[in-house]
Write a protein that binds this DNA or RNA. Structure first.
Lengths: 220, 220
DNA sequence: GATCAAAGATTGTCGAACAATCTGGAGGAT
DNA sequence: ATCCTCCAGATTGTTCGACAATCTTTGATC
């Protein structure tokens, strides 16, 4: 019963899953790249069945897509995908934040991410830290289904951000200020305000990403 | 390109997945039952790796739970689970219905399920038809992520219903009347009303299920 | 240049094997 | 009698190799 993170069955596929996930989110595997089972197996020194398992999980996460008898590929998301993902995220995260506000306490991990965002240099990329903040915030309320759905959506969002060469129009400090407002509302127990601020925050992020997407698309 | 349902990789694990799923939802595998890879493989005449894959998908669906090096088991859901699942479903389905109302059209498959519910005998179990109606309604709007999340939640909900010996306090006709009101609002393009009615409908279902759960629990 | 067939690549599934880990029971110590 | 230890069985975790099914690409033919 010493176990902390049970459920994450088996370390090998889990490690592979994480490695591939990072590769996709860091754009080391650009959209359209074929991810074949044997290549992954060879590259990481595991059996094909193990590689297959990791790939299958990525497909479940929405970070890879696969048709029968074809290699899995990194999907390239269009404006419709971005809009859908952010719409879903708004719905889920808003509900989670409202529930969190009813409890009134901020999880420590979220606070850490918040302070980290406040501390970094204005030019550092911060998408990862921002995502961590939101994940931890949602994880702080007790509804496990909301946490799971939110995690899936955040994965796809990080992939969007990696694919769009999003120029930073907002600094980390400006983002953190919005986060601060949400935190304040949560601590104050004002679920409605916290939810509204969360909605605005997410819609703003969506609009900036869509604008960057259009710019990218126009350039080519 | 003749393919209709691509994505559902490989027929064998898919069939196994469906078979096990049905067994769980029909309570043929009561909560607590251990589902071992070799037993499934032997029972269905497939290799263990294939059975393993199907089981893993069920775990992903939330219809089975598994700790490392232990057999997967059918989870028995408690009142907290029921509350969480229905809270999540309300949030997701409401958003989907509001979006559907903005389009204003009812998917044909949902209409079929609706009429089926109107036609059946008052004593017939109708949980499956009811679930189909809601699934098809959500599938009628274009956000694929909402459809996926809703599908996961509906699977868990069907499992809840199977586990609780829910005495039917409402007849199919009464349920169908609530559905009709939602459909009317959707056709009228009144997203707000459709959303509100959906929320009430789902909360009502949750309350009846929780009451039945308490009754069950008291009996033993 | 278009069409069709063969070759190659990739997934889908199987079977066997062994290590790692968990569970439950037998037997011994207190 | 109760608790502990240890062993045996059960189950998963992972590997390897093999072959069929299917998709893609190449090449030959017309």
């Amino acid at each position: 019963m010493t176990n902390a993170a049970l459920d994450e069955a088996s370390v090998l596929p889990e490690a592979l899953h994480a490695a591939l996930r990072d590769a996709i989110l860091e754009r080391a595997l650009p959209p359209g790249t074929a991810v074949t089972e044997s290549a992954v197996a060879l590259r990481h020194g595991v059996a094909r069945s193990t590689a297959r398992l990791a790939i299958e999980r990525l497909v479940g996460d929405g970070l890879l897509r696969r048709a029968p008898h074809q290699a899995a590929r990194v999907p390239s998301l269009d404006a419709g995908d971005i809009a859908d993902i952010y719409e879903s995220r708004e719905v889920v995260e808003r509900a989670a934040i409202e529930r969190l506000a009813r409890s009134g306490s901020i999880p420590a991990a979220a606070l850490r991410a918040h302070r980290e965002l406040l501390a970094i240099d204005p030019d550092t990329p911060f998408a990862r830290i921002d995502a961590t903040f939101h994940r931890e915030l949602v994880a702080g309320q007790p509804n496990a289904r909301l946490v799971r759905m939110h995690g899936l959506l955040m994965g796809e969002i990080e992939m969007c951000i990696a694919q769009v060469q999003a120029e930073r129009v907002l600094t980390p400090a400006e983002i953190a200020a919005q986060h601060q407002a949400i935190l304040d509302a949560v601590v104050a127990g004002d679920a409605d305000l916290a939810g509204r601020l969360t909605g605005e925050h997410i819609r703003g992020a969506r609009d900036r990403l869509l604008a960057a997407y259009d710019r990218d698309r126009a350039r080519q």
